[in-house]
Amino acid sequence: MAEETESTKTEPLKTAEEEFKKLEITEEEESELKLETSDHVTFMVEASIAMKFGAVQQYLEVSPAASASATAIPLHNVASRELILILEYYRMHDWVDAGERDLKEFDERFLKDLNYEELKELLLAANYLNVEKLFNFLTKSIANIIRNKDVEFVRTFFGIDNDYTPEEEAAYREENAWAGVKFV
């Protein structure tokens, strides 16, 4: 009995994976690319996803041999931890069956699991890799954090040193009172 249930559980997963692979193969000839992160971890990444990375595209334009050969494409500014997250995000968003609501839920969870430091690192990595979708998502998310917050919060959030003199600041606040700049 136990064996039966196990096999029935794994089966749909397997078929889904197979279908996924088939799709890839029909879409693109080469199946995987080798990527090496800054901490020297190599990843085998589906070409369909790797080609979404602007940095990878650029590298391949310069040295097209890399796609065929086994040499890894170096990603100097991306650590393995970030690359795992980025791949997770793209695999989800690349998944054919993912509905709009699934993606929304996934994004929320994805963001919830990150602390500010990880968020920053990920933003830098996304910027370096030139992955547009994730980059836009992250900048929008950060903007949402500081939206409708008072000036002091934003200062603490970004760690900004106020280099205005109190007079200058008061004058500016007075001038732009319409934008909701109030005195603290």
Partner: peptide, 29 residues
């Protein structure tokens, strides 16, 4: 960490905000 972000990135983030808040944030520094 965020202060160390390149200005272009900060600008991208700021540009996501409504204009009114951008004007307000001029007072930061």
């Amino acid at each position: 960490g965020f202060t160390s972000l390149p200005i272009e990135l900060l600008l991208t983030i700021l540009s996501q905000l409504p204009f009114k808040e951008v004007v307000r944030n001029c007072v930061l520094s």
